[in-house]
């Protein structure tokens, strides 16, 4: 079963008169339960591909199907709805809402999905426990270390039980220990819940966890192979 299917996708950015072809006719299918790394040098198109899979952006041409739904013609709100229920995000910068506590950050997607307070509480506590952040549930982001913030971000990404988690350079701002910790958690959750993970990274620490590595260069897929999980 495929979670995402991109067919002949091109994304051109235009800044003034200059056109940049970030992706050039990319086709890729992400299967259910995969733990995939998108690798490649800066400017190869990893982040753009991730954003298109995440419905944060729309392709200039080509087709993007997420969880069986064609997304190319969806409007802003329809895309927000699709993201809300199907996709979770982990960003390179520790993308938590600074005014909310760890608990409230994880709770936010559940609120947006209209879950009641009992369901929310149960799920948030469960997730914070899963990422080993129960003790710091009521701390705000500025009271947490980078690694802790990223673990909260992982918990938030998983809050609504999405089919797909997209992570853009999730360990780029973390030291080795914290980076490993975050990856271990994600790998464990991938195994336990069957959630599909796709990373954009050039961190070898992340790549070694991947079951599939897709290499991009100059907006095209250069290599796509499977790496056994460790």
């Amino acid at each position: 079963m495929e979670v995402a299917k991109l067919t002949d996708v091109t994304r051109v950015y235009k800044i003034g008169e200059v056109e940049t072809r970030a992706l050039n006719g990319v086709s890729i299918t992400i299967g259910d339960g995969e733990f995939t790394s998108l690798v490649g040098p800066s400017g190869s198109g990893k982040t753009t591909l991730l954003q298109l899979i995440g419905c944060l952006d729309q392709p200039t041409s080509g087709k993007v199907i997420i969880d069986g739904k064609e997304t190319t013609n969806l409007n802003r709100n329809q895309r927000a709805n699709l993201r809300k229920g199907t996709i979770g995000f982990v960003f390179q910068f520790f993308a938590l809402i600074p005014t909310l506590t760890a608990y409230e950050n994880v709770e936010m997607p559940l609120l947006l999905n209209g879950k009641n307070s009992t369901e929310r509480k149960q799920r948030v506590l469960e997730l914070l426990k899963a990422v080993d952040m129960s003790e710091r549930a009521h701390h705000r982001p500025d009271q947490l270390s980078g690694g802790q913030q990223q673990r909260v971000a992982v918990a938030r990404a998983l809050a609504t039980n999405p089919k797909l988690i997209l992570a853009d350079e999730p360990t780029a701002n973390l030291d080795t220990e914290n980076g490993e910790q975050v990856m271990e958690i994600m790998k464990r959750l991938n195994k336990e819940t069957g959630t599909t993970f796709v990373f954009a990274t050039h961190d070898p620490r992340v790549i070694k966890y991947a079951t599939r590595v897709v290499t991009l260069r100059d907006g095209v897929i250069e290599k796509d192979n499977h790496t056994p999980a460790k």
Binding site: N77, A80, N81, G88, F89, P98, L112, N113
Partner: peptide, 16 residues
Amino acid sequence: TREIGILTAIGMKGRQ
């Protein structure tokens, strides 16, 4: 701006 981007990414709609 970035925070608004995060909220949008996790599914917050324009109206919200």
